[in-house]
Design a protein around this nucleic acid. Structure first.
Ligand SMILES: Nc1ncnc2c1ncn2[C@H]1C[C@H](O)[C@@H](COP(=O)(O)OP(=O)(O)OP(=O)(O)O)O1
Ligand SMILES: [Mg+2]
Ligand SMILES: [Mg+2]
Length: 526
DNA sequence: ATTATAGCGCA
DNA sequence: TGCGCTATA
Protein backbone atom coordinates (compact mmCIF):
# COMPACT_ATOMS: atom_id res chain seq x y z
CA UNK A 1 0.00 0.00 0.00
CA UNK A 2 0.86 3.65 -0.33
CA UNK A 3 3.39 4.84 2.22
CA UNK A 4 2.21 7.13 4.98
CA UNK A 5 3.96 10.11 6.55
CA UNK A 6 3.58 10.30 10.32
CA UNK A 7 4.71 13.02 12.71
CA UNK A 8 4.97 12.57 16.47
CA UNK A 9 5.06 15.77 18.52
CA UNK A 10 6.17 15.47 22.14
CA UNK A 11 6.41 18.41 24.53
CA UNK A 12 9.77 18.94 26.23
CA UNK A 13 9.74 18.27 30.00
CA UNK A 14 6.10 19.22 29.81
CA UNK A 15 4.98 19.79 33.40
CA UNK A 16 8.23 21.61 34.10
CA UNK A 17 7.52 24.00 31.22
CA UNK A 18 4.01 24.59 32.53
CA UNK A 19 5.57 25.67 35.83
CA UNK A 20 8.15 27.80 34.02
CA UNK A 21 5.45 29.61 32.11
CA UNK A 22 3.53 30.14 35.36
CA UNK A 23 6.61 31.62 36.95
CA UNK A 24 8.83 33.02 34.20
CA UNK A 25 11.81 33.51 36.48
CA UNK A 26 12.17 29.71 36.28
CA UNK A 27 12.94 29.67 32.54
CA UNK A 28 16.50 28.55 32.00
CA UNK A 29 16.79 27.14 35.51
CA UNK A 30 16.84 23.56 36.79
CA UNK A 31 13.25 22.76 37.74
CA UNK A 32 11.66 19.64 39.14
CA UNK A 33 7.93 19.00 39.49
CA UNK A 34 7.15 17.08 42.64
CA UNK A 35 4.06 15.05 43.23
CA UNK A 36 3.10 14.77 46.86
CA UNK A 37 0.87 12.40 48.46
CA UNK A 38 0.38 12.90 52.10
CA UNK A 39 1.49 9.30 52.41
CA UNK A 40 4.95 10.75 52.58
CA UNK A 41 5.45 9.17 49.21
CA UNK A 42 6.53 11.81 46.80
CA UNK A 43 8.62 11.91 43.73
CA UNK A 44 9.57 14.04 40.76
CA UNK A 45 7.40 13.53 37.72
CA UNK A 46 9.08 16.06 35.45
CA UNK A 47 12.59 17.46 35.24
CA UNK A 48 13.68 20.45 33.16
CA UNK A 49 16.60 19.98 30.78
CA UNK A 50 18.72 22.33 32.83
CA UNK A 51 18.53 19.84 35.72
CA UNK A 52 19.24 16.72 33.70
CA UNK A 53 23.04 17.12 33.41
CA UNK A 54 23.11 16.85 37.21
CA UNK A 55 21.65 13.38 36.97
CA UNK A 56 18.23 14.37 38.30
CA UNK A 57 15.71 11.77 37.19
CA UNK A 58 11.98 11.20 37.28
CA UNK A 59 11.00 9.27 40.40
CA UNK A 60 13.59 10.83 42.66
CA UNK A 61 12.59 12.40 45.94
CA UNK A 62 13.14 16.08 46.68
CA UNK A 63 16.09 15.24 48.90
CA UNK A 64 17.72 12.98 46.36
CA UNK A 65 17.62 15.59 43.64
CA UNK A 66 18.71 18.40 45.96
CA UNK A 67 21.82 16.39 46.65
CA UNK A 68 22.63 16.14 42.96
CA UNK A 69 21.51 19.65 42.10
CA UNK A 70 21.36 21.99 45.10
CA UNK A 71 19.97 24.89 43.07
CA UNK A 72 17.03 23.00 41.62
CA UNK A 73 13.69 24.77 41.97
CA UNK A 74 10.98 22.41 43.12
CA UNK A 75 7.39 23.03 42.07
CA UNK A 76 4.54 21.14 43.64
CA UNK A 77 1.68 19.48 41.80
CA UNK A 78 -1.57 21.02 43.09
CA UNK A 79 -3.58 19.05 45.63
CA UNK A 80 -7.13 17.90 45.14
CA UNK A 81 -10.02 19.92 46.50
CA UNK A 82 -11.90 17.08 48.18
CA UNK A 83 -9.39 14.30 48.62
CA UNK A 84 -5.80 14.48 49.79
CA UNK A 85 -4.28 13.63 46.46
CA UNK A 86 -2.47 15.17 43.51
CA UNK A 87 -4.60 16.97 40.93
CA UNK A 88 -3.01 17.36 37.50
CA UNK A 89 -5.79 19.47 36.00
CA UNK A 90 -3.52 22.42 35.30
CA UNK A 91 -1.39 20.22 33.04
CA UNK A 92 -4.49 18.91 31.28
CA UNK A 93 -5.52 22.49 30.64
CA UNK A 94 -2.08 23.32 29.26
CA UNK A 95 -2.36 20.21 27.09
CA UNK A 96 -5.69 21.44 25.72
CA UNK A 97 -4.01 24.68 24.66
CA UNK A 98 -1.38 22.74 22.75
CA UNK A 99 -3.95 20.52 21.07
CA UNK A 100 -5.99 23.53 20.03
CA UNK A 101 -2.96 24.61 18.01
CA UNK A 102 -2.21 21.15 16.64
CA UNK A 103 -5.77 20.79 15.47
CA UNK A 104 -6.02 24.20 13.88
CA UNK A 105 -3.44 23.87 11.14
CA UNK A 106 -4.87 21.82 8.30
CA UNK A 107 -8.06 19.82 8.11
CA UNK A 108 -6.40 17.09 6.02
CA UNK A 109 -4.22 16.10 8.95
CA UNK A 110 -5.41 13.28 11.17
CA UNK A 111 -4.69 14.05 14.82
CA UNK A 112 -4.45 11.51 17.62
CA UNK A 113 -3.88 12.46 21.23
CA UNK A 114 -1.43 9.86 22.49
CA UNK A 115 -0.95 11.30 25.97
CA UNK A 116 -1.17 14.53 27.88
CA UNK A 117 1.92 15.79 26.09
CA UNK A 118 2.15 14.02 22.75
CA UNK A 119 0.26 13.59 19.52
CA UNK A 120 0.54 11.58 16.34
CA UNK A 121 -0.29 13.36 13.09
CA UNK A 122 -0.94 11.51 9.85
CA UNK A 123 0.25 14.05 7.29
CA UNK A 124 -0.04 11.78 4.24
CA UNK A 125 -2.86 13.66 2.52
CA UNK A 126 -1.28 17.00 3.31
CA UNK A 127 2.14 16.18 1.87
CA UNK A 128 0.68 14.31 -1.11
CA UNK A 129 -1.02 17.52 -2.12
CA UNK A 130 2.32 19.31 -2.07
CA UNK A 131 4.45 16.69 -3.79
CA UNK A 132 2.84 17.70 -7.04
CA UNK A 133 4.06 21.30 -6.90
CA UNK A 134 6.87 22.48 -9.16
CA UNK A 135 9.76 20.37 -7.98
CA UNK A 136 12.62 22.79 -8.47
CA UNK A 137 10.89 25.51 -6.51
CA UNK A 138 10.22 23.12 -3.67
CA UNK A 139 13.82 21.95 -3.62
CA UNK A 140 15.16 25.46 -3.53
CA UNK A 141 12.86 26.34 -0.67
CA UNK A 142 13.89 23.27 1.31
CA UNK A 143 17.58 23.95 0.72
CA UNK A 144 17.27 27.28 2.51
CA UNK A 145 18.91 26.76 5.91
CA UNK A 146 16.03 28.65 7.52
CA UNK A 147 13.54 26.07 6.28
CA UNK A 148 14.63 23.19 8.53
CA UNK A 149 16.52 25.07 11.25
CA UNK A 150 16.07 22.52 14.05
CA UNK A 151 16.01 19.34 11.99
CA UNK A 152 18.34 16.37 12.23
CA UNK A 153 18.71 13.38 9.97
CA UNK A 154 18.85 10.09 11.82
CA UNK A 155 20.14 7.28 9.64
CA UNK A 156 21.80 4.87 12.05
CA UNK A 157 25.29 5.78 10.85
CA UNK A 158 25.81 8.44 13.50
CA UNK A 159 28.95 7.07 15.15
CA UNK A 160 30.77 6.22 11.98
CA UNK A 161 33.48 8.80 11.56
CA UNK A 162 33.67 12.46 12.39
CA UNK A 163 30.12 12.48 13.58
CA UNK A 164 30.82 12.04 17.24
CA UNK A 165 33.59 13.68 19.14
CA UNK A 166 36.95 12.87 17.69
CA UNK A 167 38.99 14.65 20.32
CA UNK A 168 40.93 17.67 19.30
CA UNK A 169 44.55 16.90 18.58
CA UNK A 170 45.83 20.12 20.01
CA UNK A 171 45.58 20.73 23.72
CA UNK A 172 43.21 23.60 24.27
CA UNK A 173 43.19 25.54 27.48
CA UNK A 174 40.08 27.45 26.63
CA UNK A 175 37.23 25.09 27.39
CA UNK A 176 34.72 27.55 26.03
CA UNK A 177 36.43 27.86 22.69
CA UNK A 178 36.72 24.11 22.41
CA UNK A 179 33.02 23.69 23.03
CA UNK A 180 32.21 26.36 20.52
CA UNK A 181 34.23 24.69 17.81
CA UNK A 182 32.67 21.35 18.59
CA UNK A 183 29.19 22.82 18.23
CA UNK A 184 30.16 24.46 15.00
CA UNK A 185 31.29 21.12 13.65
CA UNK A 186 28.05 19.43 14.72
CA UNK A 187 26.09 22.17 13.00
CA UNK A 188 28.14 21.72 9.85
CA UNK A 189 27.46 18.00 9.75
CA UNK A 190 23.78 18.61 10.40
CA UNK A 191 23.52 20.99 7.47
CA UNK A 192 25.46 18.74 5.15
CA UNK A 193 23.23 15.76 5.88
CA UNK A 194 20.11 17.80 5.31
CA UNK A 195 21.47 19.01 1.99
CA UNK A 196 22.21 15.46 0.92
CA UNK A 197 18.70 14.47 1.90
CA UNK A 198 17.09 17.33 -0.02
CA UNK A 199 19.11 16.53 -3.10
CA UNK A 200 17.58 13.04 -3.06
CA UNK A 201 14.16 14.68 -3.06
CA UNK A 202 14.63 15.74 -6.66
CA UNK A 203 13.96 12.27 -7.94
CA UNK A 204 12.56 10.37 -5.01
CA UNK A 205 9.04 11.23 -3.84
CA UNK A 206 9.45 9.18 -0.65
CA UNK A 207 12.28 11.46 0.41
CA UNK A 208 10.36 14.52 -0.66
CA UNK A 209 7.28 13.58 1.37
CA UNK A 210 9.37 13.20 4.51
CA UNK A 211 11.08 16.52 3.89
CA UNK A 212 7.75 18.26 3.35
CA UNK A 213 6.43 16.79 6.58
CA UNK A 214 9.57 17.98 8.36
CA UNK A 215 9.03 21.46 6.97
CA UNK A 216 5.46 21.29 8.20
CA UNK A 217 6.60 20.11 11.64
CA UNK A 218 9.05 23.02 11.93
CA UNK A 219 6.22 25.46 11.33
CA UNK A 220 3.81 23.62 13.57
CA UNK A 221 6.26 23.62 16.45
CA UNK A 222 6.93 27.29 15.98
CA UNK A 223 3.21 27.97 16.08
CA UNK A 224 2.83 25.93 19.27
CA UNK A 225 5.64 28.00 20.71
CA UNK A 226 4.03 31.27 19.65
CA UNK A 227 0.61 30.44 20.99
CA UNK A 228 1.54 28.65 24.20
CA UNK A 229 5.18 29.56 24.94
CA UNK A 230 5.97 25.84 25.13
CA UNK A 231 8.82 24.15 23.29
CA UNK A 232 8.44 20.71 21.82
CA UNK A 233 10.26 18.14 19.73
CA UNK A 234 9.10 16.02 16.83
CA UNK A 235 9.89 12.91 14.87
CA UNK A 236 8.94 12.14 11.27
CA UNK A 237 8.71 8.68 9.79
CA UNK A 238 6.55 6.35 7.76
CA UNK A 239 4.73 4.98 10.80
CA UNK A 240 4.02 5.67 14.44
CA UNK A 241 6.77 3.50 15.88
CA UNK A 242 9.55 5.08 13.82
CA UNK A 243 8.23 8.62 14.31
CA UNK A 244 8.12 8.11 18.06
CA UNK A 245 11.52 6.44 18.23
CA UNK A 246 13.28 9.08 16.21
CA UNK A 247 11.67 11.95 18.11
CA UNK A 248 13.72 10.96 21.14
CA UNK A 249 16.98 11.10 19.16
CA UNK A 250 17.24 14.88 19.40
CA UNK A 251 15.57 16.65 22.27
CA UNK A 252 14.72 19.28 23.42
CA UNK A 253 13.54 21.89 20.91
CA UNK A 254 14.56 19.79 17.93
CA UNK A 255 13.14 17.36 15.42
CA UNK A 256 14.44 14.34 13.57
CA UNK A 257 13.63 12.29 10.52
CA UNK A 258 14.72 9.10 8.87
CA UNK A 259 15.84 8.69 5.26
CA UNK A 260 13.41 6.20 3.71
CA UNK A 261 15.12 2.84 3.59
CA UNK A 262 17.33 3.51 6.61
CA UNK A 263 14.85 2.20 9.16
CA UNK A 264 16.67 -1.06 9.78
CA UNK A 265 19.94 0.81 10.17
CA UNK A 266 18.36 3.15 12.71
CA UNK A 267 16.96 0.19 14.60
CA UNK A 268 20.14 -1.91 14.51
CA UNK A 269 21.63 -0.68 17.78
CA UNK A 270 18.36 0.32 19.40
CA UNK A 271 17.57 -1.47 22.65
CA UNK A 272 14.32 -3.40 22.40
CA UNK A 273 13.02 -1.72 25.54
CA UNK A 274 13.09 1.71 23.90
CA UNK A 275 10.67 0.69 21.17
CA UNK A 276 7.00 1.45 21.76
CA UNK A 277 5.27 -1.72 22.94
CA UNK A 278 8.46 -3.45 24.07
CA UNK A 279 9.13 -1.48 27.24
CA UNK A 280 7.51 -4.07 29.50
CA UNK A 281 7.22 -7.79 29.96
CA UNK A 282 7.34 -8.71 26.30
CA UNK A 283 10.60 -6.85 25.74
CA UNK A 284 12.07 -8.33 28.90
CA UNK A 285 11.13 -11.84 27.95
CA UNK A 286 12.69 -11.34 24.52
CA UNK A 287 15.93 -10.73 26.36
CA UNK A 288 15.48 -13.37 29.01
CA UNK A 289 14.25 -16.19 26.82
CA UNK A 290 16.07 -15.54 23.57
CA UNK A 291 18.96 -13.29 24.61
CA UNK A 292 17.74 -10.53 22.33
CA UNK A 293 18.92 -7.12 23.49
CA UNK A 294 18.75 -4.96 20.37
CA UNK A 295 16.37 -4.55 17.46
CA UNK A 296 19.20 -5.70 15.18
CA UNK A 297 19.32 -8.99 17.04
CA UNK A 298 15.56 -9.27 16.78
CA UNK A 299 15.78 -8.62 13.03
CA UNK A 300 18.25 -11.47 12.62
CA UNK A 301 16.27 -13.94 14.71
CA UNK A 302 14.79 -16.68 12.49
CA UNK A 303 11.04 -16.39 12.25
CA UNK A 304 10.76 -20.06 13.25
CA UNK A 305 12.39 -19.26 16.57
CA UNK A 306 10.20 -16.24 17.22
CA UNK A 307 7.05 -18.11 16.25
CA UNK A 308 7.94 -20.98 18.53
CA UNK A 309 8.61 -18.75 21.52
CA UNK A 310 6.05 -15.96 21.01
CA UNK A 311 3.34 -17.36 18.74
CA UNK A 312 0.93 -14.48 19.37
CA UNK A 313 3.47 -11.70 18.93
CA UNK A 314 5.86 -13.07 16.32
CA UNK A 315 4.28 -11.46 13.24
CA UNK A 316 4.16 -8.06 14.88
CA UNK A 317 7.69 -8.41 16.25
CA UNK A 318 9.09 -9.22 12.82
CA UNK A 319 7.36 -6.25 11.25
CA UNK A 320 8.57 -3.86 13.92
CA UNK A 321 12.13 -5.17 13.55
CA UNK A 322 11.95 -4.30 9.85
CA UNK A 323 10.74 -0.80 10.73
CA UNK A 324 7.19 -1.56 9.62
CA UNK A 325 4.14 -0.70 11.69
CA UNK A 326 0.60 -0.65 10.32
CA UNK A 327 -1.04 0.86 13.38
CA UNK A 328 -3.28 3.68 12.13
CA UNK A 329 -3.38 7.19 13.47
CA UNK A 330 -6.75 7.27 15.14
CA UNK A 331 -8.61 10.57 14.66
CA UNK A 332 -9.27 11.34 18.27
CA UNK A 333 -8.48 14.27 20.54
CA UNK A 334 -10.84 13.51 23.42
CA UNK A 335 -10.14 10.96 26.11
CA UNK A 336 -12.32 7.87 26.15
CA UNK A 337 -12.53 7.88 29.91
CA UNK A 338 -11.55 9.98 32.88
CA UNK A 339 -10.58 8.87 36.32
CA UNK A 340 -9.18 9.54 39.73
CA UNK A 341 -7.27 7.20 41.97
CA UNK A 342 -5.02 6.92 44.96
CA UNK A 343 -2.49 4.49 46.33
CA UNK A 344 -2.36 3.39 49.94
CA UNK A 345 0.99 1.63 50.11
CA UNK A 346 2.32 -0.47 52.98
CA UNK A 347 1.15 0.71 56.33
CA UNK A 348 -1.18 3.25 54.74
CA UNK A 349 -3.43 0.44 53.56
CA UNK A 350 -7.12 0.75 54.33
CA UNK A 351 -8.29 -1.66 57.03
CA UNK A 352 -11.58 -0.20 58.18
CA UNK A 353 -15.00 0.28 56.77
CA UNK A 354 -14.99 3.89 57.85
CA UNK A 355 -11.72 4.65 56.10
CA UNK A 356 -12.87 2.98 52.92
CA UNK A 357 -16.01 5.07 52.97
CA UNK A 358 -14.05 8.24 53.68
CA UNK A 359 -11.73 7.80 50.70
CA UNK A 360 -14.41 6.66 48.33
CA UNK A 361 -16.34 9.76 49.26
CA UNK A 362 -13.43 12.10 48.59
CA UNK A 363 -12.49 10.41 45.35
CA UNK A 364 -16.10 10.44 44.20
CA UNK A 365 -16.24 14.18 44.69
CA UNK A 366 -13.07 14.59 42.66
CA UNK A 367 -14.52 12.41 39.94
CA UNK A 368 -17.77 14.29 39.93
CA UNK A 369 -15.90 17.55 39.42
CA UNK A 370 -14.06 16.01 36.47
CA UNK A 371 -17.34 14.75 35.02
CA UNK A 372 -18.94 18.17 35.35
CA UNK A 373 -15.95 19.79 33.61
CA UNK A 374 -16.07 17.25 30.85
CA UNK A 375 -19.80 17.63 30.39
CA UNK A 376 -19.53 21.36 29.82
CA UNK A 377 -16.43 21.19 27.69
CA UNK A 378 -17.25 18.21 25.51
CA UNK A 379 -21.01 18.01 25.65
CA UNK A 380 -21.20 14.39 26.57
CA UNK A 381 -22.23 12.26 29.51
CA UNK A 382 -20.55 9.22 31.02
CA UNK A 383 -22.74 6.13 30.96
CA UNK A 384 -20.54 4.01 33.11
CA UNK A 385 -18.43 4.32 36.22
CA UNK A 386 -15.91 1.69 37.25
CA UNK A 387 -14.79 1.18 40.82
CA UNK A 388 -11.44 -0.50 41.05
CA UNK A 389 -10.07 -1.71 44.34
CA UNK A 390 -6.62 -3.24 44.61
CA UNK A 391 -6.14 -5.59 47.49
CA UNK A 392 -3.43 -7.88 48.77
CA UNK A 393 -3.04 -10.44 46.06
CA UNK A 394 -5.61 -10.31 43.38
CA UNK A 395 -6.61 -6.95 42.08
CA UNK A 396 -10.32 -6.99 42.28
CA UNK A 397 -12.48 -4.79 40.21
CA UNK A 398 -16.11 -4.20 39.78
CA UNK A 399 -18.21 -2.03 37.60
CA UNK A 400 -21.31 -0.08 37.85
CA UNK A 401 -23.52 0.85 35.03
CA UNK A 402 -26.65 2.90 34.95
CA UNK A 403 -27.52 6.09 33.21
CA UNK A 404 -25.31 8.37 35.20
CA UNK A 405 -26.92 11.20 33.38
CA UNK A 406 -28.25 13.75 35.77
CA UNK A 407 -27.51 11.37 38.60
CA UNK A 408 -24.02 12.63 39.27
CA UNK A 409 -25.28 14.14 42.47
CA UNK A 410 -26.03 10.67 43.76
CA UNK A 411 -22.82 9.14 42.58
CA UNK A 412 -21.56 8.17 46.01
CA UNK A 413 -24.75 6.34 46.90
CA UNK A 414 -24.30 4.37 43.72
CA UNK A 415 -20.63 3.60 44.17
CA UNK A 416 -20.52 2.73 47.84
CA UNK A 417 -22.56 -0.47 47.52
CA UNK A 418 -20.40 -1.50 44.56
CA UNK A 419 -17.35 -1.03 46.68
CA UNK A 420 -18.88 -2.86 49.62
CA UNK A 421 -19.54 -5.81 47.40
CA UNK A 422 -15.79 -6.24 47.17
CA UNK A 423 -15.44 -6.53 50.91
CA UNK A 424 -14.69 -10.03 52.09
CA UNK A 425 -14.43 -9.47 55.80
CA UNK A 426 -17.41 -8.76 58.12
CA UNK A 427 -17.97 -6.09 60.77
CA UNK A 428 -16.05 -2.86 61.13
CA UNK A 429 -12.93 -4.18 59.51
CA UNK A 430 -12.27 -4.22 55.81
CA UNK A 431 -10.68 -7.38 54.53
CA UNK A 432 -8.55 -7.80 52.61
CA UNK A 433 -6.71 -4.48 53.08
CA UNK A 434 -6.91 -1.98 50.23
CA UNK A 435 -3.80 -0.63 48.52
CA UNK A 436 -5.46 1.36 45.79
CA UNK A 437 -8.83 2.82 44.98
CA UNK A 438 -9.54 4.22 41.57
CA UNK A 439 -12.69 5.40 39.86
CA UNK A 440 -13.15 5.92 36.20
CA UNK A 441 -16.01 7.25 34.13
CA UNK A 442 -16.46 6.37 30.51
CA UNK A 443 -18.67 5.11 27.75
CA UNK A 444 -19.65 8.61 26.86
CA UNK A 445 -22.91 9.45 25.19
CA UNK A 446 -22.38 12.35 22.83
CA UNK A 447 -24.67 15.32 23.19
CA UNK A 448 -26.74 16.52 26.10
CA UNK A 449 -30.45 16.46 26.80
CA UNK A 450 -32.04 19.69 25.61
CA UNK A 451 -32.80 20.82 29.13
CA UNK A 452 -29.06 21.34 29.55
CA UNK A 453 -28.90 23.85 26.82
CA UNK A 454 -29.30 27.03 28.81
CA UNK A 455 -26.01 26.79 30.65
CA UNK A 456 -24.24 25.43 27.59
CA UNK A 457 -25.49 28.28 25.47
CA UNK A 458 -24.25 30.77 27.99
CA UNK A 459 -20.82 29.17 28.01
CA UNK A 460 -20.70 29.24 24.24
CA UNK A 461 -21.42 32.93 23.93
CA UNK A 462 -19.06 33.73 26.74
CA UNK A 463 -16.32 31.60 25.19
CA UNK A 464 -16.43 33.65 22.01
CA UNK A 465 -16.15 36.90 23.91
CA UNK A 466 -13.30 35.71 26.08
CA UNK A 467 -11.33 34.20 23.27
CA UNK A 468 -11.32 37.53 21.55
CA UNK A 469 -10.47 39.51 24.62
CA UNK A 470 -8.27 37.41 26.82
CA UNK A 471 -7.23 34.16 25.22
CA UNK A 472 -7.20 30.49 26.02
CA UNK A 473 -6.43 30.63 29.71
CA UNK A 474 -9.57 32.61 30.39
CA UNK A 475 -11.62 30.12 28.41
CA UNK A 476 -10.33 27.18 30.42
CA UNK A 477 -11.24 29.05 33.56
CA UNK A 478 -14.67 29.84 32.23
CA UNK A 479 -15.30 26.19 31.53
CA UNK A 480 -14.34 25.35 35.04
CA UNK A 481 -16.49 28.07 36.53
CA UNK A 482 -19.43 26.77 34.60
CA UNK A 483 -18.63 23.25 35.73
CA UNK A 484 -18.40 24.44 39.31
CA UNK A 485 -21.81 26.00 39.03
CA UNK A 486 -23.15 22.82 37.51
CA UNK A 487 -21.68 20.90 40.41
CA UNK A 488 -23.32 23.20 42.93
CA UNK A 489 -26.61 22.64 41.21
CA UNK A 490 -26.09 18.91 41.57
CA UNK A 491 -25.18 19.29 45.21
CA UNK A 492 -28.38 21.17 45.90
CA UNK A 493 -30.16 18.39 44.15
CA UNK A 494 -28.38 15.83 46.27
CA UNK A 495 -29.13 17.67 49.50
CA UNK A 496 -32.58 17.93 48.96
CA UNK A 497 -35.88 16.55 48.17
CA UNK A 498 -37.37 17.15 44.84
CA UNK A 499 -35.72 20.52 44.33
CA UNK A 500 -37.74 22.76 42.14
CA UNK A 501 -37.07 23.07 38.49
CA UNK A 502 -37.82 26.71 39.20
CA UNK A 503 -34.79 27.37 41.31
CA UNK A 504 -32.65 25.67 38.78
CA UNK A 505 -34.00 27.71 35.97
CA UNK A 506 -33.71 30.83 38.04
CA UNK A 507 -29.99 30.28 38.47
CA UNK A 508 -29.63 30.01 34.78
CA UNK A 509 -31.66 33.06 34.05
CA UNK A 510 -29.47 35.03 36.36
CA UNK A 511 -26.53 33.73 34.45
CA UNK A 512 -28.22 34.69 31.25
CA UNK A 513 -28.72 38.20 32.50
CA UNK A 514 -25.05 38.47 33.22
CA UNK A 515 -24.48 38.29 29.55
CA UNK A 516 -24.84 42.00 29.23
CA UNK A 517 -22.59 42.77 32.15
CA UNK A 518 -19.58 42.46 30.01
CA UNK A 519 -17.06 42.88 32.78
CA UNK A 520 -18.39 40.15 35.00
CA UNK A 521 -16.80 36.75 34.71
CA UNK A 522 -18.65 35.28 37.63
CA UNK A 523 -21.34 32.78 36.98
CA UNK A 524 -22.92 32.57 40.37
CA UNK A 525 -25.03 35.31 41.79
CA UNK A 526 -26.75 33.83 44.71
C1' DA B 1 8.08 6.90 42.70
C1' DT B 2 2.29 8.23 42.01
C1' DT B 3 -1.51 9.28 39.22
C1' DA B 4 -3.50 8.93 34.72
C1' DT B 5 -5.05 6.78 30.08
C1' DA B 6 -5.57 3.17 26.37
C1' DG B 7 -6.16 -1.33 24.49
C1' DC B 8 -6.16 -6.47 24.22
C1' DG B 9 -7.68 -11.35 25.14
C1' DC B 10 -10.80 -14.18 27.36
C1' DA B 11 -15.15 -15.86 29.05
C1' DT C 1 -19.97 -6.85 28.16
C1' DG C 2 -17.03 -7.22 32.39
C1' DC C 3 -12.65 -8.18 34.10
C1' DG C 4 -7.68 -8.93 34.40
C1' DC C 5 -3.67 -7.62 32.52
C1' DT C 6 -0.23 -4.99 29.85
C1' DA C 7 1.90 -0.72 28.29
C1' DT C 8 2.78 4.11 28.44
C1' DA C 9 3.33 9.11 30.08
N1 LIG D 1 5.47 7.88 35.26
C1 LIG D 1 4.82 9.05 35.30
N2 LIG D 1 3.96 9.31 36.30
C2 LIG D 1 3.29 10.47 36.34
N3 LIG D 1 3.41 11.45 35.46
C3 LIG D 1 4.25 11.24 34.45
C4 LIG D 1 5.00 10.04 34.31
N4 LIG D 1 5.74 10.13 33.20
C5 LIG D 1 5.47 11.32 32.67
N5 LIG D 1 4.57 12.01 33.40
C6 LIG D 1 4.04 13.35 33.10
C7 LIG D 1 5.04 14.43 33.42
C8 LIG D 1 5.69 14.77 32.10
O1 LIG D 1 6.12 16.12 32.04
C9 LIG D 1 4.59 14.47 31.13
C10 LIG D 1 5.10 14.03 29.77
O2 LIG D 1 5.91 12.89 29.89
P1 LIG D 1 7.15 12.63 28.96
O3 LIG D 1 6.88 13.15 27.60
O4 LIG D 1 7.54 11.21 29.05
O5 LIG D 1 8.34 13.43 29.62
P2 LIG D 1 8.63 14.98 29.63
O6 LIG D 1 7.72 15.69 28.70
O7 LIG D 1 8.61 15.46 31.04
O8 LIG D 1 10.13 15.06 29.14
P3 LIG D 1 10.66 14.83 27.67
O9 LIG D 1 11.22 16.15 27.25
O10 LIG D 1 11.70 13.79 27.80
O11 LIG D 1 9.52 14.39 26.82
O12 LIG D 1 3.79 13.44 31.71
MG1 LIG E 1 7.43 15.02 26.71
MG1 LIG F 1 5.43 12.25 26.11
Amino acid sequence: QMSRVIVLVDMDCFYAQVEQRDKPSLWGKPVGVLQYSANGQSGLIAVSYEARPFGVKRGMTANQCKELCPDIEICLVPQGEYADKADIQKYRDASAEVFAVLGSIDSRIILEKASVDEAFLDCTAYVESRVTKVREETIQRLLDPACLPTSFIVDGKEDEKDEDETEDEEETVDEEARLKRKNERIEMIRKRKIEEFIEKCRFDDEFLKIALAAEFAERLREKVREKTQFYCSAGVGNNKTMAKLVCAAHKPRKQSFIPPGSEVDVLRNTKVSSVRGLGGKLGRSLTERLGINTMGELYRTPSSVLTATFPDNAPWLMQIARGEDYDKVDSRVLQRNLGVGKNFPGTMAIYTNMNAKFWLNGLTKELRKRMADDKIKHRRLAQKVVVHVTTDVSTSKSVKVGATEEKEGRLFEKLWPVMQSMRKGPGEGWKPPIFNISLSAGRFLEGLPSKENSIIGWVERRTKQLEEMEGKDAVEKLNRDAAAEEKRRLEREEMGEEEGEGEEMEGIFMVDNLDDDDDDDCLIVE
